[in-house]
Simulated assay, not measured.
Amino acid sequence: MDKFLLQQQVLERLAEDLMQAEQAARTAHETATHEENIAENKYDTLGLEAAYLATGQARRAEAIRQSIANWRQFRPLPYDASKGIQLGALVCLTDADDNQQHLFLGPFGGSMKLASGDQPVQVISSEAPLGRALLGKCEGDEVAIEVAPTRQQFEVLWVQ
């Protein structure tokens, strides 16, 4: 699995998300400012609701822009066993049922599922519960997280 290609996939997906958020913000702004949506009484709130929606979509677009900037600056380093898992690590975990999952630990804002060949890879940030639990771990270590009332345990099979 190539970390650079995974990073490019994240950037492409974020660019698509940004286009959708910007289009949604434009549409909501046009709805909010359209002459047919001028409030005729205090109960006529379509224009006001559209304005709130436009503001929310603009904030979402800005958050995606920040994520894109973070991912563009991100330089995943090779795994160093003396430091353990760090940002940029590609990790294979197994659970108690021997189900494997591949994770790519990246900067905030890129949580998504990608494919590396025919292998699914979950992108998570170090701020996610599992991402935090992985930091500093090495091959063979066990990792546990609490999800609602359930405790999940994994073993680190390999790290790149």
Rank of each mutant, 00 (worst) to 15 (best):
V10Q: 00
T27C: 07
A51G: 05
A89E: 08
Q100I: 11
A69E: 13
Q152K: 05
N41S: 14
V91N: 05
Q100D: 14
W158K: 13
V10E: 02
E155C: 12
H29S: 14
D98A: 15
G131H: 01
A115W: 08
Q153L: 06
T45V: 15
I64R: 00
L46S: 15
L93F: 06
D44T: 13
L18K: 05
L134R: 02
Y43A: 14
D97E: 13
T45Q: 15
A133W: 03
Q100K: 14
Q66G: 09
R72K: 15
L90A: 10
C138K: 13
Q160P: 10
T33M: 07
A148L: 07
N37R: 06
D118G: 08
E62V: 02
Q8S: 13
T94Q: 12
T94I: 11
L77M: 15
Q66N: 13
D44E: 15
S111A: 02
A63I: 02
E30R: 08
A28V: 07
N41V: 13
I68A: 09
A15P: 05
I85L: 10
V121P: 06
A24Q: 08
V156T: 06
D80K: 11
A81C: 14
M1Y: 08
L53H: 06
E127M: 04
K42E: 15
Q100G: 14
T55G: 02
Y43H: 14
T94F: 07
I64D: 00
H102W: 15
G109K: 00
T55I: 02
F104L: 10
R60H: 10
Q9M: 06
T27E: 10
Q23A: 15
R75W: 14
S126W: 01
A89S: 15
Q153D: 03
T33N: 09
F74K: 08
W71T: 07
R13G: 03
W158S: 14
Q23V: 06
I85G: 06
I85A: 06
S67E: 01
K3N: 10
I64P: 01
S111K: 03
Q23K: 13
I68P: 05
T31F: 07
V156L: 11
N37T: 08
K83G: 13
D2L: 12
Q101Y: 03
C92D: 11
A61R: 00
V147D: 08
A21M: 04
R60Q: 12
